[in-house]
Simulated assay, not measured.
Amino acid sequence: MIPLSRLGFGGAPIGNLYAEVSDSDAVGALEAAWDAGVRYFDTAPHYGLGLSERRIGSFLASRPRDSFVVSTKVGRVLEPCSSGGDDLANGFAVPARARRRWDFSADGVRRSLESSLDRLGLDRVDVAYVHDPDSHFEQAVSEAIPALVSLRAEGLVGAVGIGMNQWEMPARFVRETDVDVVLLAGRYTVLEQTGASLLELCASRGVSVVAAGVFNSGLLARPEVGSTYDYQAAPAALVERARRIASVCTRHGVTLPQAAVQFPFRHPAVASVLVGVRTAAEMRANASALSASVPDALWEDLRAEGLL
């Protein structure tokens, strides 16, 4: 079992997700995470065409290797290109000096990991996730997972995982393959628990769960019209539900973000919660939310009102 800190650092924002993050802000966010006791750092080649991996690797270079856990992902191979322009069409404010190519083959997995290790400046990663194989299940299950299992045996990977924004396909991976950990984004939050059956399955098989997207991409941080849910404009019905949850939280002296960060730990399968941040202030706010006192009566009232 990989030892994960309860709070993990999600590396997409410092890969310039949607907007540029300065080097100083990125380092500040990472320093604030370290100061808050965060020792689990998650990244991927997809995040800023490798920028997130380079920033996290540079930050961790001065820390003892056994003092932190790093996860990265496979499934998108980066290939150099000279088309110019930026990568905003894919969500990242970086120069388009590379293109992504879906590749869940055994060879692609090895090449992707080798490139990630180079950007991270590491000789191994603690967790390697198969990343978003929604349309590539057959190749992912027949080639990518076995390749990672082999890399695990070689010591280049500590644990094999699957990382997705849905729960149905990860459940298939848990049933059919030798995965150690599932990264589940957005499907087990105080707003939505559609992934509950996956967590039950993981608990029964000794598979750890990392809960990501605990703010449902923004709605649980700011429950108002114009907020986002799954990276799109939140439907009015969900905004109203989030507001009702926030109202119950207020009655108990709890903020909605505090409830959002702490809720996933109500399930014993959840080992860590990942939060994506771009500044030190955001990191400190999330760490404070995790340490806040949340009474059991809050969860009981949410259930009583049909909100859980």
Rank of each mutant, 00 (worst) to 15 (best):
R244C: 04
P170T: 09
R54T: 03
L60A: 00
P80F: 12
R172N: 09
A98P: 01
E192T: 04
A221R: 12
S105Y: 14
P170Y: 12
W299V: 03
A106K: 11
P3K: 06
T189A: 12
P64T: 01
S112C: 13
E143M: 03
V70Q: 10
Q193S: 02
L17I: 06
L156A: 10
S82W: 09
A89W: 15
V182G: 05
V182I: 04
A287C: 12
R97A: 13
F41D: 01
L30F: 05
L7H: 01
V254I: 11
A12V: 07
V275G: 11
A89H: 15
N90P: 09
P133G: 02
A32I: 12
V270I: 00
A19Q: 14
E79G: 01
C202L: 13
S62H: 15
P45R: 08
R278T: 11
G213L: 06
D25M: 09
S135Q: 12
S115P: 08
F59E: 06
P295H: 01
A234W: 01
S135T: 14
E305L: 10
M283C: 02
L120G: 03
R222E: 14
F137R: 11
V182F: 07
W102M: 05
P45F: 12
G161Y: 06
L199P: 02
P264E: 08
D123Y: 01
L198S: 07
C202M: 15
Y129P: 10
V160R: 11
G28N: 08
A98T: 03
G253D: 15
A292Q: 07
L238H: 13
L302K: 07
R100M: 14
S67N: 05
G206V: 00
V275I: 12
V160N: 13
S116Y: 08
